[in-house]
Amino acid sequence: MIHILDEITLPPERIPEVLKLLREYHLPSHSARGLTLVGEWVCPPVAMPGKSNVLWLSWQVDDAPAWYRMRATTTPEAVECWARIDALCESRRRHVMVDADAVLPVPLKADHAA
């Protein structure tokens, strides 16, 4: 299983707008692409004047081939959704992870024979 954690820093008043964009533009195609939304969280759990919050989105895909299939089948709606989210947020980072006990594949060496 591959876990994807999106970290979106934004003003707290923007959180409902970002969630609406995700639900209208990104989520309709996500399951067909092998992507499962696992959870949505906000940190800190309060809105503080003049302070940003972090919206955490947790996703899963089955394995590395599913990750690459998901990336290869990105829809125009998903691209538009993330562009609109980027315009609303201060920063956005994506973390792609596997379980710490998983056996990590070793990349193949490129053949550099001359």
Rank of each mutant, 00 (worst) to 15 (best):
V61Q: 00
A78Y: 05
W59D: 02
G50F: 09
V96G: 08
P65H: 03
W56E: 11
R84K: 11
A64G: 08
D99I: 05
R71Y: 07
K51N: 03
P76D: 07
S58M: 02
H95A: 08
V42Y: 01
A72D: 11
P105L: 08
W59H: 08
L108R: 06
N53Y: 01
K51Y: 04
V46L: 13
D86M: 06
W67P: 00
D101S: 10
M48H: 11
A64M: 15
K51E: 09
R93G: 06
P45H: 07
E40Y: 05
Q60N: 05
M97D: 06
W41R: 13
R84D: 00
V61M: 02
S52M: 07
P45W: 03
S58D: 03
P65F: 05
M48K: 13
T73Y: 07
M70K: 02
C81M: 03
T74W: 08
P49Y: 09
D63I: 02
K51T: 01
A78F: 09
A87Y: 04
P105Q: 06
S52F: 05
L57S: 06
S91A: 15
E40V: 14
W59S: 04
A113N: 08
A72P: 00
C89E: 04
L108G: 04
M97A: 15
M97R: 10
M70S: 03
A87P: 01
W82N: 04
L55M: 13
P107L: 01
S52Q: 05
P76L: 12
L104H: 07
R93C: 07
D111I: 15
K109G: 09
W41I: 09
K109S: 13
Q60A: 02
P76G: 05
V42D: 01
